[in-house]
Design a protein around this nucleic acid. Structure first.
Lengths: 354, 354
DNA sequence: CTGAAAGCGCTTACAG
DNA sequence: CTGAAAGCGCTTACAG
């Protein structure tokens, strides 16, 4: 009685070896390559191991095998923020499917102390999927130092780094052309929040989309700098959309159409518009980007630009797993298609009053 | 020319030490505890390290520090499946928030080759959050062997294992009482899929909820075995709900109300009912469980049992982090409250024809 | 079929 | 302020 649970040390391979009267080699083989041992020995070792409650230390194994069996997803924001947009769980479904078949775990690696740079050296993974890296503050260099393969998703990748992007430019162009063709002139672009402060400085996905918006406007002899065209940034969430709409609607000449860079924000905008008693699309049109499942279910159904989110995740993970097996594979750069889906949230602007 | 990129080996602490003309100890200190060294030495070492592109090996560090700085979330199903229910991303937001402040990464650990048992020894984490473990096929024992702390969420935890559950029984009871009080008699229970084949065998969350359903029925002098009460299992997804509804509706005497164990399934049921031209709630009532954000936005808004999903994740992670720092802390067993939210998807059954 | 030994790349008392 | 040495718990040629 009163015997306090002694902090019983974890049992190691050496203890099994000693207890079983064999070498550590034998113990290791008993678990990893039993064919090297006589069945009797294997049995004996396993019995002992079972009795002592042996569980091989994965860290120690990784130390020699140089494998962790974990895929890292390097995030530009913390997990709580990332997870508010359904985009991400869908993306992870794609990644996760590949992890499953490859027998790997999936590690979410958010910025450490606010810095992606600091997070990179700490994550025990075999490779990284880098998503939405906007500006390279040394992240790529840090990743190279780590000497683990990585692929980039939704970002400007160096030539030697495999990448997956969607045709953002084309998608954005289609969205802009759509509202323009409907006759809208006062248009707001609600874009993702960025490290950059001016849209002229955008890179990666944002730059590609702005190029697309410009393309569309140019086709109608318009410019993104026209006073009728407004650009606002909003958080990628419903709340962000509500906020953006409210801000826009307070102006003396509010837009008749909004082109948003994400569905979740567009859905917030739609919600806010309805809450303001504004009829959509008659009085106000809205276009999203992504084609989340909820876009189609919205009332009215959201016109949006579809991108293959899950496939992005799947391809990224597949490329990474391939690179794990063959470090010298040629880097591939995928650009997946986007597609405008015209649904119920857009139409020709009806003059109400003004 | 033609010089193929030599597979340049990763640079190690020894190389830095040699190049800088100091000991490995000094190099280690230069990064982890600079106060032990003269500023000049620190500077010198760091310069060399920078030039050579040194990145300390996280595995090797973990080997000695016995820390990976990763929290594992042990899943009962693969990632692609888990991620279809918005419940999970919300849960992860809670976990992720704690990871952020603790400076840890988050590792998703799905079954390995179909087995949770096999996954446990392989994950390089400092501790596990075990979610929805239904029947213990040795998982708990395997976790103990690993000698890492773990907490259980939504499952029957041994006394010495910290746990977080919600008051499933009370929630289920309230849901059942609600439809009963409305006057429904033909009621279907759509439950989560289970390893068990008969509801009498259920454990954990499922058992608690069934106890609650029984409680509610008993209060009306009814029994779960009454022929009017049907029980069907369905995947936790919209598609699962659609499927369940369709099956139920084909019966000669379909239920006038469904009590579902998850919102996402309930939402699918609602969708299917509407698609069948059935008026909800007039002709058909439906109650969910969870209170996902989309429950309130549904048309009609879904009556459901709220549970604090994000808080569950946050608490679980907090308890785990606490256990990491103090192995001998007393295990806490949380039971968070559930609450019936009566919205628009339920009402007194209107006799249509029959 | 089995074992002794080296090694993976770090950290950390310990000594000076 | 700095270094030599042991050690973390495995795996893996290599030898027998």
């Amino acid at each position: 009685m009163g015997a306090k649970r002694t902090a019983q040390r974890k049992v190691t391979i050496s203890q099994i070896a000693k207890e079983a009267g064999v070498s550590k080699t034998a113990v290791s083989f008993a678990f990893n390559d039993p064919s090297q041992l006589s069945p009797a020995t294997v049995n004996h070792i396993r019995t002992i191991a079972e009795r002592l409650g042996y569980s091989p230390d994965p860290i120690a194994r990784s130390m020699t095998t140089r494998r962790t069996n974990a895929l890292g997803v390097l995030l530009p924001q913390d997990i709580a923020t990332i997870m508010v947009n359904p985009f991400f769980p869908i993306f992870l479904r794609g990644v996760g499917a590949v992890c499953g078949t490859a027998g790997m775990t999936l590690m979410l690696v958010p910025p450490l102390w606010g810095s992606m740079l600091k997070a990179i050296p700490h994550a025990t993974v075999d490779g990284f999927i880098v998503v939405g890296l906007e500006i390279d503050r040394g992240e790529v260099q840090q990743l190279r130092r780590r000497h683990v393969p990585f692929v980039m998703v939704d970002g400007d990748a160096p030539h030697d780094v495999p990448s997956i992007n969607v045709d953002d430019r084309q998608g954005a162009r289609a969205a802009m052309l759509h509202v323009l063709s409907l006759g809208h002139r006062r248009i707001a672009i609600v874009c993702l929040e960025s490290w950059h402060h001016r849209y002229e400085e955008f890179t990666g996905t944002l730059a590609a989309r702005f190029a697309g918006y410009r393309d569309g406007l140019a086709a109608y002899g318009r410019s993104i700098d026209d006073p009728d065209i407004q650009i606002v940034a909003a958080p990628t969430s419903r709340a962000g959309g509500v906020e953006a709409f409210t801000r826009l609607w307070q102006a003396e000449a509010p837009p008749t159409a909004i082109v948003a860079m994400s569905d979740i924000t567009a859905l917030g905008i739609l919600e806010a518009a309805k809450a303001h008693g504004i009829r959509v699309p008659e009085e106000f049109s809205i276009v999203g980007f992504d084609d989340l499942p909820e876009a189609e279910r919205a009332v009215p159904p959201l016109t949006t630009v579809r991108q293959p989110i899950e496939e992005k995740g799947r391809l990224a993970a597949e490329m990474l797993v391939a690179a794990l097996d063959d470090e010298d594979s040629e880097p591939i750069h995928h650009i997946l298609p986007t597609e405008l889906l015209v649904r119920g949230s857009t139409c020709t602007p009806q003059l109400v009053y003004t």
